[in-house]
């Protein structure tokens, strides 16, 4: 009996996560194009479906039906593996994300650690993509992605640590519960919140930190040689990764599903899309930062500030 419940639960979780990933991709891509359009005196997609909502579906169908071109000199196993390695971890990273008190695929005591660890695998996928297709632009893009990883990952972790100190748990669900009877952690930790915002923009390779795929410099960066469905896997991974990063941000800093009037999932999605909108706003406003500027920004500004912030929090916590 317990066995059967577990199987049903697992199947439901997989179905749920796939639905979230698929619907999110359709919606976020549409939203991004609409946001970009209105920022640029345009309308964005209008033709397919109501207000162009089904445009992404049409684009997806086109991408699926296209031929996948394998470069002759590519390392084919790595070439095929790379987009999969990019996509699978973000699926798994959705497991411990709580959408309300009782909507969660899997409660884990170390949910936060799992998400952070899986976030690193994304870069492995990019590295494999850049190496496997034997293209100089792709290799440069991949090497940029790897070079920047420590510059944002350490400040990111140092921003999460004060939250763990405040809530005393690694479980994403417990972190939200801890904010139920106090203020949201963004108000306790404004510095960590801002640095986290910058760091997830870097982590998801979004403009102004999109130099792994910098169009004007590297054509398309690490996915220059990818076409059709393999390209759209990278695309899907990027948008899902944005979704995960935004979900973690709202759990850590904005009290997850907590909020008045509306039910939990609505609040959770509102907060997630608030972060996604912020990332779109960055992308369509700023020019691209140079690689070395980003590295020195990460190492010389973000890292010391987040370290100080962490030490200060720890000191205050110890004194209290």
């Amino acid at each position: 009996m317990i066995m059967e419940i577990t199987i049903v639960r697992t199947l439901l979780s997989i179905l749920g996560i796939t639905l979230v990933v698929g619907l999110n991709a359709v919606f976020v891509v549409w939203l991004e194009r609409k946001v970009a359009g209105h920022m640029q005196y345009r309308l964005g997609p209008t033709e397919v479906g109501p207000a162009g909502l089904l445009q992404t579906v049409a684009d997806g169908l086109k991408l699926v039906s296209k031929q996948i071109i394998f470069p002759r000199s590519a390392d084919t196993p790595i070439f095929i593996l790379a987009p999969i390695i990019c996509l699978v971890p973000v699926f798994v990273a959705l497991l411990p994300v709580p959408f309300s008190e009782n909507i969660q695929a899997h409660e884990l005591d170390v949910g936060l650690l799992l998400v952070i660890a899986l976030g690193l695998l994304n870069t492995l996928g990019i590295l494999l993509a850049g190496w496997g297709c034997d293209n100089k632009y792709a290799l440069l893009g991949a090497s940029r992605a790897v070079a920047q990883i420590l510059a944002y990952k350490i400040p990111l972790l140092l921003c999460i640590l004060p939250i763990i100190l405040l809530s005393g748990t690694f479980s994403l669900r417990e972190i939200v519960v801890a904010q139920d009877h106090s203020l949201w952690f963004a108000l306790y930790q404004p510095v960590a919140f801002l640095i986290y915002l910058v760091a997830i923009t870097m982590e998801t390779n979004r403009s102004p930190f999109d130099f792994a795929e910098a169009e004007s410099e590297l054509v398309a960066g690490f996915h220059t040689e990818y076409s059709g469905m393999m390209f759209s896997l990278f695309f899907l991974a990027e948008y899902t990764y944005m979704f995960v990063a935004a979900a973690i941000a709202s759990v850590l800093f904005l009290g997850g599903w907590l909020g008045p009037f509306f039910p939990g999932p609505v609040w959770m999605l509102l907060k997630i899309y608030f972060f996604l909108f912020l990332m779109m706003w960055f992308r369509w406003t700023f020019p691209r930062v140079r690689v070395d500027q980003m590295l020195s920004f990460g190492w010389k500004i973000l890292l010391p500030i987040s370290l100080l912030n962490f030490l200060l929090t720890a000191g205050v916590m110890a004194a209290l």
Binding site: A36, Q40, Y41, R42, P208, D210, S216, W284, T285, R288
Partner: peptide
């Protein structure tokens, strides 16, 4: 500005 990675000014100027 497109070379510098900003897309929006391009369309503002084109308008």
């Amino acid at each position: 500005l497109l070379d510098l990675g900003a897309f929006t000014p391009f369309l503002h100027a084109f308008e």
